[in-house]
Structure formats: structure tokens, C-alpha cells
Write a protein that binds this DNA or RNA. Structure first.
Lengths: 225, 225
DNA sequence: TCATTATTGATAGTAAAGCTATTCTATTTG
DNA sequence: CAAATAGAATAGCTTTACTATCAATAATGA
């Protein structure tokens, strides 16, 4: 099987981690560790110990742990966009494209053999719990200027364009889609930790499918004239 | 004018800050400081210096800075619920109640003379930028068990009940409202920092009003049969 | 093949953050 | 008036988030 590489914005790293053994190890074990400890308890020192390297070496790949998180989350959005491109190619009907995008967003994530270094299931949990922290900072504007959020913006734009094809009169395609992308994760988080904030529930079957149905209602009811 | 006090869950603090001069100062200046520096750069040490007190003294009121944030955000949700109760009393029509709730959620916040100690405008900015951090932690479940998120859950429940009155067949009232509460802040944040993720824009007039219209479309289109 | 230059490891050090503990004084409160 | 409490002052500890320096090793290229 062909092994792919997603092209990442150069500002996301100091040295490209996809190009060296150590770099790939940082990514792999970093994902496992953030998944384990959560982002606040995660440190480069701990990660260095885990991969039998040193803090200083990790700093040669990532400026700091915030950038590291931004990198991982950006990878995820790039991956989703690639999956949506893949899943919607040769499809004309915009409604169908939208349905497919919503499915891809909400479906249970499994390891993608095209990217053997990345544990997508763990990364998905990280996205759910930590992705907001990438932009909820005082340096958003700087980070944005450096293009760190390009992946997310590009994904949002793409799906918003499907919305626009379905109903060109709808005034808030970007707002709707950014809301939906957020909701997709949030609802799963709530189902797990704050169940009174959601109607998704493990009791009545597959969470991801319920989530997909909820998002479909939200999107299609909102934009249908 | 009568001065009110919102009743806060006791687990939110060590000593009730509403009851002493120092406590109120911590709240007041703490809000100003988080608004200024952002939550990550904010520390009890800096706050102590600002109010001419000591770190140790602040620790007598709040277990740590995370709890302090949770307290402030909880205060905000309690305040909103109080405003919605106030604004919807004696109104029967559930659609109107829902419209009012959405207005209150999305409207520009101004200082409320009933609560002279709190700068609601600054607190609103904090909510927009920091509120997610209250629950996006590894200790959510513990914090939730202690009832720290009661305010938000109660607000969500109330508005979801309006939705339910409007359309008892709609299956996702809580999911819809938690999504909307989130979106209300998120869209303003995006408009300010990541404008390509939203259709709200300062160019075409009042952001808050556009936000209200977006949320109305989202909610009423979604639940209308 | 030899030199050079990247890469990593080892080690050290620093400022700040996030606490905890102790003692002392001023002030309530019973 | 005694006893409890609030707060100030001070100190100290561990961890985090870096930065810097230097040596060892691997890769490369002339």
C-alpha cells in the first residue's frame, strides 16, 4: 500500500517531523501521551523520557508544546479534507456531497493505513478534547497570520461551498459549517462527560450515527427553503 | 437600587468571595486581569500584586486558578438564566420565550446595575475566549460531580424546554441548545479573529444583531416541522 | 576517503508558575 | 476579655517551559 504524506504548513514546525525517525517518534508518542495525560499535563520533558531522547531534541522539531498541538490538529483537518475530497469525487449532486461530508465528519475514526505513523483514533480523541485550545489564546491573530489554521479554514470553506450549491440564498454557510464542525465534537464530548447537555446517548445505539443524524437535521432543515 | 447576589454552588470556592471586601476585590480585579492577559498568563501572584494583597490570601478564596475561572463562568451562566427568567415571565407563547432567550444570549452585554461588583462586558469577553477551558480538562467528571457546571446545564435545560414546547416531536432539543450556546460565542470570536469562518461581519452593521438572526434561523428552521 | 556539517544526546541552568506552610498582627464575635 | 478568624509577610518547594553549550555520532559531498 502506498504511504501518503499530508503537506503541512512550514510554520507549524521548526524541523519537519515527517522526515526523520525521531520526528515520527515525537508525533507517534506525542499523540499517545496527550491522549493519556491531556494537553495541560503533557510536557516535552515527559515525552523525551518516553522516547529516550531529550527535551532539547524535541525543541528542535517544535517551537513549543502549543505549536505541537496546533500541528497535530492541523494534520487532522488536512486528513479530513483529503477524505472528503476522496469521498466526493465524481459526485455532482451538492446535497449528496454535503451528506457525505457530514458522514465523514461524524463517523467513528479508524486507523488509516495510508498514514501508518498516526493513530487516528487517539488523534480524534485529542481533537475532541483539545482542538479549541489551538485558537483560544491571546496569540490567535499572530498564529493566524502565520497560516497555522489554514487546514480548518479550508475545510470549512469547502463544505460551505456545498451548502452554497444546495441553497445559494442561504446567508450563513460559513457560520453554519463552523458551527457544525464544532458541534460534531462537542456533542460527543457531552455524551461522554456532561450527558444532560445532549440527546445523544449510548443507550439507544451508536453515538456516531445519532450524531450524524442530528447534524443532518441541523444542516438540511436550516438551509432548506 | 437593590443589589442582588447570585447564589453560587459552594464547591466553586473555598471561602465565599461575595462576603468580604478582599473577596469582591479578587473577583473585580481578577476579571479585569483575565480580560487583559488571557487565562494562561493570568496568575494569582500577579493578581495579588495588583490588589496589594498576597498569593496566599487569594488561595484562601479559591483552590486554584482553574476553579477561579469556573467560578466566573458559572456566575455568567447564572446571570444569563436570571435574565431569561426575568425576560420571559408572564409570557405564555413558547416561540416568543425562545426568541427572547436567543436575544438575551446574543445581545451585547452591558453592566448590570444590580451587580455593581461585576464588569459584565469584560466577563462576556472572558466567556467568549475562555469558557470552554472550564470543562475541556481531564478532571471534567470530578468537577461535574461536584456540581461546578450546574449553571450551564440548568440554562441549557431551560431553553431546551422552550424548544420542546414549540415542537415536542423534535428529537434533539438539548443538543440543539448546547450547540447554539456554543455557537453564539464562537461566531463572535471568529468574526473578530478568524473571519473566514463566519458570515457575520462588522461591515454590514451590528455583529450582535446578525448573530441573533443567524441563531434564530438555525433554531427555528431546525425545529419547524 | 577525508572533511564538513547536520543531528542528536548529555548536561546545566534560569525564570516563572503553582502551590504549601508558618508566624504574626489586626479585627471580629461570643 | 478571651478566643477565633482574616489577612499580611515571608519563605520555600517542585515543576514547567525554556535556552545554551559542548561532545559524539551519522550522513554527505568533494
Amino acid at each position: 500500500m502506498a504511504t501518503l504524506q499530508l503537506l503541512m504548513n512550514e510554520n507549524l514546525f521548526v524541523r519537519d517531523p515527517q522526515e526523520t525517525e525521531l520526528g515520527r517518534k515525537i508525533i507517534q508518542e506525542g499523540i499517545a501521551m496527550i491522549d493519556d495525560l491531556g494537553f495541560e499535563k503533557f510536557t516535552f520533558k515527559k515525552l523525551a523520557a518516553r522516547i529516550d531522547s531529550t527535551e532539547a531534541s524535541i525543541y528542535r522539531y517544535f517551537e513549543n508544546k502549543h505549536r505541537f498541538l496546533v500541528y497535530l490538529i492541523a494534520w487532522y483537518w488536512n486528513w479530513l479534507e483529503y477524505k472528503i475530497d476522496f469521498g466526493t469525487q465524481n459526485i455532482e449532486d451538492p446535497s449528496r456531497k454535503l451528506v457525505i461530508a457530514l458522514r465523514i465528519i461524524s463517523e467513528k475514526k479508524q486507523r488509516d493505513p495510508f498514514f501508518p505513523d498516526i493513530d487516528e483514533e487517539a488523534l480524534y480523541r485529542i481533537v475532541i478534547a483539545e482542538s479549541d485550545k489551538t485558537y483560544l489564546t491571546k496569540q490567535v491573530d499572530e498564529d493566524n497570520r502565520e497560516g497555522l489554521f489554514r487546514g480548518f479554514k479550508s475545510l470549512c470553506k469547502k463544505i460551505a461551498s456545498f451548502v452554497n450549491e444546495v441553497n445559494p440564498d442561504f446567508q450563513y454557510p460559513h457560520s453554519l459549517i463552523s458551527t457544525v464542525l464544532q458541534a460534531a465534537h462537542q456533542q460527543l464530548f457531552y455524551a461522554e462527560h456532561l450527558p444532560s447537555l445532549t440527546n445523544l446517548t449510548k443507550k439507544t445505539g451508536d453515538l456516531h450515527q445519532q450524531n450524524e443524524e442530528f447534524l443532518n437535521e441541523l444542516v438540511f432543515n436550516t438551509i432548506k427553503v
